[in-house]
Protein backbone atom coordinates (compact mmCIF):
# COMPACT_ATOMS: atom_id res chain seq x y z
CA UNK A 1 0.00 0.00 0.00
CA UNK A 2 1.33 3.41 -0.91
CA UNK A 3 1.21 6.27 1.51
CA UNK A 4 -0.86 9.29 0.59
CA UNK A 5 0.62 11.26 3.48
CA UNK A 6 4.08 10.88 4.90
CA UNK A 7 5.10 12.97 7.84
CA UNK A 8 8.76 13.11 8.69
CA UNK A 9 10.19 14.61 11.87
CA UNK A 10 7.47 17.22 12.08
CA UNK A 11 7.94 19.78 14.83
CA UNK A 12 5.75 22.68 15.70
CA UNK A 13 5.83 24.87 18.76
CA UNK A 14 3.95 27.91 19.91
CA UNK A 15 5.11 30.65 22.23
CA UNK A 16 5.68 28.48 25.25
CA UNK A 17 4.75 24.93 24.43
CA UNK A 18 5.76 22.28 21.99
CA UNK A 19 2.57 21.20 20.26
CA UNK A 20 4.23 18.55 18.10
CA UNK A 21 7.50 16.91 19.02
CA UNK A 22 9.09 15.03 16.18
CA UNK A 23 6.07 13.36 14.63
CA UNK A 24 6.59 10.59 12.07
CA UNK A 25 3.55 9.10 10.46
CA UNK A 26 2.48 7.31 7.28
CA UNK A 27 -1.12 7.31 6.18
CA UNK A 28 -1.94 4.77 3.51
CA UNK A 29 -4.11 5.42 0.55
CA UNK A 30 -7.71 4.28 0.63
CA UNK A 31 -8.10 3.67 4.34
CA UNK A 32 -10.05 5.33 7.09
CA UNK A 33 -7.36 6.48 9.43
CA UNK A 34 -8.18 7.24 13.04
CA UNK A 35 -6.22 10.01 14.69
CA UNK A 36 -6.76 9.58 18.38
CA UNK A 37 -5.72 11.52 21.36
CA UNK A 38 -7.00 13.27 24.43
CA UNK A 39 -7.94 16.92 24.24
CA UNK A 40 -4.92 19.12 23.75
CA UNK A 41 -2.73 16.26 22.54
CA UNK A 42 -1.89 17.97 19.27
CA UNK A 43 -4.49 16.50 16.89
CA UNK A 44 -5.74 19.84 15.61
CA UNK A 45 -2.22 21.22 15.30
CA UNK A 46 -1.21 18.19 13.26
CA UNK A 47 -4.26 18.60 11.03
CA UNK A 48 -3.63 22.30 10.58
CA UNK A 49 -0.18 21.40 9.34
CA UNK A 50 -1.71 19.00 6.83
CA UNK A 51 -4.20 21.63 5.64
CA UNK A 52 -1.39 24.18 5.37
CA UNK A 53 -2.97 26.56 7.85
CA UNK A 54 0.22 26.24 9.88
CA UNK A 55 3.70 25.87 8.56
CA UNK A 56 5.93 23.31 10.30
CA UNK A 57 8.86 24.64 12.30
CA UNK A 58 10.88 21.78 10.92
CA UNK A 59 10.32 18.43 9.25
CA UNK A 60 8.50 17.57 6.05
CA UNK A 61 5.09 16.50 4.89
CA UNK A 62 4.69 14.65 1.61
CA UNK A 63 1.48 14.25 -0.33
CA UNK A 64 1.73 11.23 -2.63
CA UNK A 65 5.48 11.53 -2.51
CA UNK A 66 5.50 15.21 -3.36
CA UNK A 67 6.32 17.90 -0.85
CA UNK A 68 3.08 19.40 0.42
CA UNK A 69 2.40 22.71 -1.31
CA UNK A 70 -0.51 25.09 -2.04
CA UNK A 71 -1.60 23.20 -5.17
CA UNK A 72 -2.56 20.25 -2.97
CA UNK A 73 -5.40 22.30 -1.46
CA UNK A 74 -7.57 20.99 -4.28
CA UNK A 75 -6.80 17.40 -3.24
CA UNK A 76 -7.65 17.85 0.42
CA UNK A 77 -11.03 18.37 2.04
CA UNK A 78 -11.18 19.56 5.60
CA UNK A 79 -14.04 19.79 8.06
CA UNK A 80 -12.78 21.42 11.23
CA UNK A 81 -14.19 20.65 14.62
CA UNK A 82 -15.40 24.21 14.98
CA UNK A 83 -17.63 24.55 11.99
CA UNK A 84 -19.32 27.51 10.47
CA UNK A 85 -20.88 28.97 7.37
CA UNK A 86 -21.79 32.46 6.24
CA UNK A 87 -25.15 32.99 7.84
CA UNK A 88 -26.54 35.50 5.39
CA UNK A 89 -25.50 33.71 2.25
CA UNK A 90 -27.76 31.50 0.21
CA UNK A 91 -26.80 27.84 0.37
CA UNK A 92 -26.16 27.28 -3.30
CA UNK A 93 -24.10 30.44 -3.63
CA UNK A 94 -22.16 29.60 -0.54
CA UNK A 95 -21.30 26.11 -1.73
CA UNK A 96 -20.22 27.38 -5.13
CA UNK A 97 -18.08 30.03 -3.48
CA UNK A 98 -16.35 27.55 -1.18
CA UNK A 99 -15.85 25.16 -4.08
CA UNK A 100 -14.30 27.86 -6.20
CA UNK A 101 -11.94 28.81 -3.41
CA UNK A 102 -10.72 25.24 -3.53
CA UNK A 103 -9.88 25.79 -7.15
CA UNK A 104 -12.93 24.54 -9.04
CA UNK A 105 -14.03 26.54 -12.06
CA UNK A 106 -17.39 28.29 -11.88
CA UNK A 107 -18.96 25.66 -14.13
CA UNK A 108 -17.53 22.67 -12.28
CA UNK A 109 -18.53 24.14 -8.93
CA UNK A 110 -22.07 24.65 -10.12
CA UNK A 111 -22.40 21.13 -11.47
CA UNK A 112 -20.98 19.55 -8.35
CA UNK A 113 -23.19 21.57 -6.05
CA UNK A 114 -26.19 20.41 -8.03
CA UNK A 115 -25.03 16.82 -7.94
CA UNK A 116 -24.53 16.79 -4.17
CA UNK A 117 -27.70 18.67 -3.42
CA UNK A 118 -29.57 16.12 -5.50
CA UNK A 119 -27.74 13.36 -3.67
CA UNK A 120 -28.86 14.63 -0.29
CA UNK A 121 -32.28 15.58 -1.70
CA UNK A 122 -32.06 19.19 -0.62
CA UNK A 123 -32.44 20.92 -3.98
CA UNK A 124 -35.45 22.82 -2.69
CA UNK A 125 -33.30 24.47 -0.04
CA UNK A 126 -30.79 26.02 -2.38
CA UNK A 127 -32.10 29.58 -2.12
CA UNK A 128 -32.48 29.56 1.62
CA UNK A 129 -30.03 31.37 3.83
CA UNK A 130 -27.93 29.36 6.23
CA UNK A 131 -29.40 31.12 9.23
CA UNK A 132 -32.85 29.86 8.26
CA UNK A 133 -31.78 26.20 8.40
CA UNK A 134 -31.99 23.74 11.24
CA UNK A 135 -28.74 22.70 12.80
CA UNK A 136 -28.85 19.24 11.27
CA UNK A 137 -29.36 20.78 7.85
CA UNK A 138 -26.44 23.13 8.35
CA UNK A 139 -24.28 20.15 9.15
CA UNK A 140 -25.24 18.48 5.91
CA UNK A 141 -24.33 21.65 4.04
CA UNK A 142 -21.04 21.79 5.86
CA UNK A 143 -20.29 18.24 4.86
CA UNK A 144 -21.12 18.95 1.23
CA UNK A 145 -18.81 21.97 1.36
CA UNK A 146 -16.02 19.69 2.55
CA UNK A 147 -16.35 17.01 -0.11
CA UNK A 148 -17.59 19.18 -2.96
CA UNK A 149 -14.30 19.16 -4.84
CA UNK A 150 -14.07 15.38 -4.40
CA UNK A 151 -10.73 15.37 -2.62
CA UNK A 152 -8.43 12.38 -2.49
CA UNK A 153 -7.81 13.04 1.17
CA UNK A 154 -10.62 13.96 3.50
CA UNK A 155 -9.82 15.24 6.98
CA UNK A 156 -12.64 15.22 9.49
CA UNK A 157 -11.96 16.67 12.91
CA UNK A 158 -14.49 15.30 15.41
CA UNK A 159 -17.06 14.86 12.65
CA UNK A 160 -19.76 13.57 14.96
CA UNK A 161 -19.57 16.36 17.48
CA UNK A 162 -22.91 18.09 17.66
CA UNK A 163 -24.53 15.66 15.22
CA UNK A 164 -27.78 13.93 15.91
CA UNK A 165 -27.70 10.12 15.40
CA UNK A 166 -29.42 10.36 12.03
CA UNK A 167 -26.91 12.78 10.57
CA UNK A 168 -24.03 10.97 12.24
CA UNK A 169 -25.13 7.81 10.48
CA UNK A 170 -25.54 9.62 7.22
CA UNK A 171 -22.01 10.92 7.41
CA UNK A 172 -20.72 7.51 8.39
CA UNK A 173 -22.36 5.94 5.34
CA UNK A 174 -20.91 8.64 3.11
CA UNK A 175 -17.49 8.06 4.57
CA UNK A 176 -17.68 4.34 3.88
CA UNK A 177 -18.88 4.98 0.36
CA UNK A 178 -16.07 7.39 -0.29
CA UNK A 179 -13.55 5.01 1.17
CA UNK A 180 -14.78 2.33 -1.20
CA UNK A 181 -14.27 4.74 -4.06
CA UNK A 182 -10.66 5.21 -3.06
CA UNK A 183 -10.76 8.30 -0.87
CA UNK A 184 -8.47 8.34 2.13
CA UNK A 185 -10.10 9.65 5.27
CA UNK A 186 -8.40 10.98 8.34
CA UNK A 187 -10.81 10.79 11.20
CA UNK A 188 -9.75 12.68 14.28
CA UNK A 189 -11.54 12.09 17.52
CA UNK A 190 -11.18 11.51 21.22
CA UNK A 191 -14.21 9.19 21.19
CA UNK A 192 -13.03 5.66 20.72
CA UNK A 193 -16.32 3.87 20.02
CA UNK A 194 -16.55 5.40 16.57
CA UNK A 195 -13.02 4.35 15.73
CA UNK A 196 -13.46 0.61 16.07
CA UNK A 197 -16.26 0.27 13.62
CA UNK A 198 -14.70 2.47 10.96
CA UNK A 199 -10.96 2.69 11.07
CA UNK A 200 -8.50 0.22 9.65
CA UNK A 201 -5.48 2.14 10.85
CA UNK A 202 -4.96 4.43 13.77
CA UNK A 203 -2.36 6.64 15.38
CA UNK A 204 -2.48 7.59 18.99
CA UNK A 205 -1.13 11.00 19.79
CA UNK A 206 -0.46 12.23 23.27
CA UNK A 207 1.33 15.34 24.40
CA UNK A 208 2.56 16.06 20.92
CA UNK A 209 4.00 12.62 20.27
CA UNK A 210 2.74 9.58 18.41
CA UNK A 211 2.77 6.85 21.01
CA UNK A 212 1.11 4.13 18.97
CA UNK A 213 0.34 3.53 15.33
CA UNK A 214 -0.62 0.72 13.03
CA UNK A 215 -3.52 -1.45 11.90
CA UNK A 216 -6.34 -1.76 14.38
CA UNK A 217 -6.26 -5.57 14.27
CA UNK A 218 -2.52 -5.76 14.82
CA UNK A 219 -2.63 -3.25 17.65
CA UNK A 220 -5.29 -5.27 19.36
CA UNK A 221 -3.28 -8.48 18.92
CA UNK A 222 -0.18 -6.85 20.30
CA UNK A 223 -1.96 -5.50 23.29
CA UNK A 224 -4.12 -8.45 24.17
CA UNK A 225 -3.72 -10.02 27.59
CA UNK A 226 -4.70 -13.61 26.63
CA UNK A 227 -8.03 -13.36 28.30
CA UNK A 228 -10.77 -15.86 27.51
CA UNK A 229 -14.41 -16.03 28.42
CA UNK A 230 -15.87 -19.48 28.94
CA UNK A 231 -19.61 -19.91 29.10
CA UNK A 232 -20.89 -23.10 30.69
CA UNK A 233 -24.39 -24.51 30.45
CA UNK A 234 -26.61 -23.69 33.40
CA UNK A 235 -26.30 -27.19 34.93
CA UNK A 236 -22.50 -27.18 34.81
CA UNK A 237 -20.22 -25.48 37.21
CA UNK A 238 -16.59 -24.39 37.45
CA UNK A 239 -15.11 -27.08 39.65
CA UNK A 240 -12.43 -26.52 42.27
CA UNK A 241 -9.96 -28.66 40.35
CA UNK A 242 -10.36 -26.43 37.39
CA UNK A 243 -10.06 -23.36 39.54
CA UNK A 244 -6.78 -24.59 41.01
CA UNK A 245 -5.25 -24.92 37.60
CA UNK A 246 -7.01 -21.97 36.00
CA UNK A 247 -7.97 -19.33 38.53
CA UNK A 248 -11.13 -17.87 37.07
CA UNK A 249 -13.21 -14.85 37.71
CA UNK A 250 -16.92 -15.20 37.33
CA UNK A 251 -17.97 -12.20 35.28
CA UNK A 252 -21.60 -13.19 34.76
CA UNK A 253 -23.76 -16.11 35.63
CA UNK A 254 -22.01 -19.16 34.09
CA UNK A 255 -19.42 -16.97 32.43
CA UNK A 256 -15.83 -17.34 33.67
CA UNK A 257 -12.88 -15.26 32.68
CA UNK A 258 -9.48 -16.83 32.53
CA UNK A 259 -6.07 -15.48 31.77
CA UNK A 260 -3.78 -17.90 29.95
CA UNK A 261 -0.08 -17.32 30.08
CA UNK A 262 0.78 -19.49 27.17
CA UNK A 263 -1.46 -19.78 24.25
CA UNK A 264 -2.68 -23.28 25.22
CA UNK A 265 -6.40 -22.85 24.77
CA UNK A 266 -6.88 -26.41 23.48
CA UNK A 267 -5.47 -27.87 26.66
CA UNK A 268 -7.84 -25.72 28.69
CA UNK A 269 -10.79 -26.92 26.68
CA UNK A 270 -9.78 -30.56 27.17
CA UNK A 271 -9.45 -30.02 30.91
CA UNK A 272 -12.92 -28.55 31.09
CA UNK A 273 -14.46 -31.35 29.09
CA UNK A 274 -12.87 -33.87 31.48
CA UNK A 275 -14.86 -32.37 34.35
CA UNK A 276 -18.00 -33.18 32.40
CA UNK A 277 -18.99 -29.59 32.34
CA UNK A 278 -20.61 -28.64 29.06
CA UNK A 279 -19.12 -25.66 27.27
CA UNK A 280 -21.51 -23.54 25.27
CA UNK A 281 -19.23 -20.59 24.64
CA UNK A 282 -15.53 -19.97 24.32
CA UNK A 283 -14.04 -16.74 23.11
CA UNK A 284 -10.88 -14.72 23.27
CA UNK A 285 -11.22 -11.22 24.64
CA UNK A 286 -9.41 -8.56 22.67
CA UNK A 287 -8.92 -5.22 24.35
CA UNK A 288 -10.96 -2.31 23.04
CA UNK A 289 -9.09 0.58 21.54
CA UNK A 290 -10.42 2.60 24.42
CA UNK A 291 -8.72 0.30 26.92
CA UNK A 292 -5.47 0.35 24.99
CA UNK A 293 -5.71 4.10 24.73
CA UNK A 294 -6.22 4.61 28.45
CA UNK A 295 -3.47 2.11 29.25
CA UNK A 296 -1.00 3.78 26.91
CA UNK A 297 -1.73 7.27 28.13
CA UNK A 298 -1.36 6.07 31.72
CA UNK A 299 1.93 4.33 30.96
CA UNK A 300 3.11 7.42 29.22
CA UNK A 301 2.36 9.60 32.18
CA UNK A 302 4.08 7.35 34.73
Amino acid sequence: MTAIIQIKNLKKSFENHEALKDVNLDIHQGVIFGLLGPNGAGKTTLIRNLTQIYRPDSGDIFFKGEKLQPKHILNIGYMPEERGLYKKMKIEEQLIYLGRLKGLSAKEAKEKVKKWMDHFEIQSWKNKKTEDLSKGMQQKIQFIATILHEPELLILDEPYSGLDPINANLIKDEMLKMRDNGTTIIFSTHRMESIEELCEEIALINNGEIILQGKVKEIKEENKQNLYNITLSSESKWSDTLNNKYPAQQVEENVYQISLHQNNSNELLLDIIHTKASVIGFNEILPTINEIFIQKVKNYQS
Binding site: T51, Q52, I53, I73, I76, Y78, M79, P80, E82, R83, G84, L85, Y86, K87, L98, L101, K102, G103, A145, T146
Partner: peptide, 14 residues
Protein backbone atom coordinates in the same frame (compact mmCIF):
# COMPACT_ATOMS: atom_id res chain seq x y z
CA UNK B 1 -15.98 35.19 10.42
CA UNK B 2 -14.01 34.52 13.52
CA UNK B 3 -17.00 34.00 15.80
CA UNK B 4 -19.01 31.89 13.39
CA UNK B 5 -15.91 29.77 12.79
CA UNK B 6 -16.00 29.70 9.05
CA UNK B 7 -12.53 31.11 9.02
CA UNK B 8 -10.85 27.76 9.53
CA UNK B 9 -12.61 26.38 6.47
CA UNK B 10 -11.52 29.46 4.56
CA UNK B 11 -7.93 29.18 5.70
CA UNK B 12 -7.71 25.61 4.47
CA UNK B 13 -8.35 27.02 0.98
CA UNK B 14 -6.55 30.37 0.96
Amino acid sequence: EKTNRIVEVMLSSI
